[in-house]
Design a protein around this nucleic acid. Structure first.
Length: 341
DNA sequence: AACAGGGTCAACCGCTGTTGC
DNA sequence: GGCAACAGCGGTTGACCCTGT
């Protein structure tokens, strides 16, 4: 369908450019400037279509192109810009000097997208993946049925550390479902096979009800993120910050984190996942079969004493590891963690 | 050494938006 | 307003490279 490719006409060349072709194009553009791409190939004695010449110039030959690996700052900027602009690669590229839309698009598809997926974040919405949320909802629903045996305040063990509102809200959600908050954690160890049976018996209307409560849960995580911000003692100073702030002012839109957040380039979405991780790990502590509970990072890294989260790692693995570090909550040593968990 | 599988990225394709007549 | 030419964008492809077996 549609018109035929321009290069099909007149036996124009396709495929990789040779050094000779590159030189011809560079020489011509240096002499005459770019533009009028349609007539450029003929004038430059190139057997290419204008489109191909434009692409070669803008994506590869342009003198102001910055080549090489993306820095962490650039990566953070891309993630943030993508959360605002979506797949508007040219708009994103215009805010990253020296990078082309094609380069950013490729980098997104080959690196960032996969990393976000690994972290349980939907690369389209920049929120925790719906399937994980639904899993949480279903588990939550199962917990509704089992509420006589579950100490939900223990389930939300991080509440007192991070955001009492979150737990309070969830608890009230639970009590709206006629839940009763039991008294003591020792009584509440779950038999995983029993939970699995409950899991299978969940009705669609129960699932919907709990998806609704999960929506509230997500809203509350935004408050949680604000608290996490306060916990962080080191603010990362990214080059993109001014650019992003300008963009936020232009669009009036913050990167889906909730208006209460201060704009900076820290990866706020982490907090959503961190919340899920905590919830899942607490579920694990309650005896859920690990095969039922997929945590973004299954390791049980010890709680960190430092609250600095930004590490300028180099390799892919290191960056993943850094993300994992960000997920770790900072627990003051004065707190009795064992008591909370 | 040979092969398979996966990752990367330059280049292409098809579509849409803009401009000029 | 309608049309054609052109520029630009985002999605996709395929050649190449690397790594593991």
């Amino acid at each position: 369908m549609g018109k035929s490719a321009c290069c099909d006409k007149n036996g124009l060349k396709k495929g990789p450019w040779t050094a000779e072709e590159d030189q011809k194009l560079i020489d011509y553009i240096q002499k005459h400037g770019h533009g009028r791409w349609r007539t450029l190939p003929k004038n430059a004695e190139l057997k290419r279509c204008g489109k191909s010449c434009r692409l070669r110039w803008t994506n590869y030959l342009r003198p102001d192109i910055k080549r090489g690996k993306f820095s962490i700052e650039e990566e953070e900027a891309i993630i943030q810009l993508h959360s605002i602009l979506g797949n508007k690669w040219s708009a994103i590229a215009s805010r990253l000097p020296g990078r082309t839309d094609n380069e950013i698009k490729n980098f997104w598809n080959t690196h960032i997208k996969k990393r976000l997926l690994r972290m349980g974040i939907d690369p389209v919405t920049h929120k925790p993946r719906l399937d994980l949320l639904q899993l949480y909802s279903v588990l939550n629903s199962s917990l509704c049925n089992l509420s006589h045996q579950i100490n939900l305040s223990n389930l939300l063990g991080i509440e007192s550390i991070l955001n009492p509102n979150l737990a309070t809200s969830l608890l009230s959600t639970q009590s709206n479902s006629q839940d009763i908050i039991p008294k003591n954690f020792q009584e509440n160890q779950l038999d995983s096979s029993y939970v699995q049976n409950q899991f299978q018996s969940v009705q669609p209307n129960q699932i919907q009800a709990c998806i609704d409560s999960s929506t509230q849960f997500m809203n509350e995580t935004q408050l949680l993120q604000a608290n996490l911000e306060q916990l962080s003692t080191s603010q990362t100073n990214f080059n993109c910050q001014n650019s992003l702030q300008g963009l936020w002012q232009e669009t009036g839109k913050y990167p889906n984190m909730g208006e209460s957040l201060m704009p900076n380039c820290a990866y706020h979405e982490i907090s959503n996942q961190a919340m899920m991780k905590c919830s899942f790990e607490n579920l694990s502590n309650l005896g859920f079969n690990s095969s039922m509970i997929s945590t973004p990072s299954s390791s049980t890294t010890p709680l960190q004493s430092s609250s600095t989260t930004y590490v300028n790692g180099g390799t892919e693995d290191e960056r993943d590891s850094n993300c994992s570090n960000i997920l770790m909550f900072d627990i003051p040593s004065s707190l009795d963690v064992n008591g909370l968990l």
